[in-house]
């Protein structure tokens, strides 16, 4: 759905474009401009600071105000004081907050979150869920969640259930 991979058959239309007909660079363009991602394993760059990690999508698109926007995103996730810390110096919950800041820094039209609480304890998990849903409202985006957590699924407006590759 997010254009990271191509289906073996059928087509996927993302934000009005049939991404199955686009090459990888064109799909990357759409992802860079209008899509945000949050992953289960956070996937922060360990050698970069929290701020640098958040700046990554904007630096790729050549945004001149990348640093200011990244600072703002970190403030929105409540981590402005940890901006100079390296990813390895952060707790699991903090890492996911940085990852969320990175996913919203380009103000995406659609935000994909793959098991965003899968690697977190219950307390952090609740906080991250609240953060995700409040940010969705704040930046007015569509949140697409993939989860095994039914309580998390219940918070969504629409739920689709997949079992053994089939939509139920």
């Amino acid at each position: 759905m997010a254009g990271l991979d191509l289906p073996t058959s059928g087509s996927v239309t993302l934000l009005g474009s049939d991404i199955t007909k686009l090459d990888e660079d064109k799909r990357a363009q759409i992802r860079g401009k209008d899509v945000g991602f949050v992953f289960q394993s956070f996937h922060l760059m360990p050698r970069l600071t929290a701020l640098d990690n958040v700046m990554l999508p904007l630096e790729i698109s050549g945004d001149r105000y990348a640093m200011d926007k990244a600072q703002e995103a970190l403030e929105q996730v409540g981590l402005s004081k940890r901006s100079k810390h390296f990813a390895t110096q952060l707790s699991g919950g903090e890492k996911q907050r940085v990852a969320i800041a990175r996913s919203i820094v380009n103000k995406p039209k659609i935000l994909f979150a793959d098991e965003p609480t899968g690697n977190l304890d219950i307390k952090s998990s609740g906080a991250i869920t609240d953060l995700l849903f409040s940010l969705k409202e704040l930046i007015n985006t569509t949140l697409v969640l993939v989860t095994h957590d039914l309580s998390l699924a219940e918070k969504c407006d629409e739920v689709f259930e997949l079992s053994e590759g089939q939509l139920l």
């Binding site: 990357a28 860079g32 401009k33 996937h43 760059m45 999508p57």
Partner: peptide, 16 residues
């Protein structure tokens, strides 16, 4: 590979 894959996810092209 992680860094590059991430950059691709966030919109980096092959030439980038």
């Amino acid at each position: 590979l992680l860094h590059t894959s991430l950059m691709k996810v966030f919109g980096a092209s092959k030439t980038f």
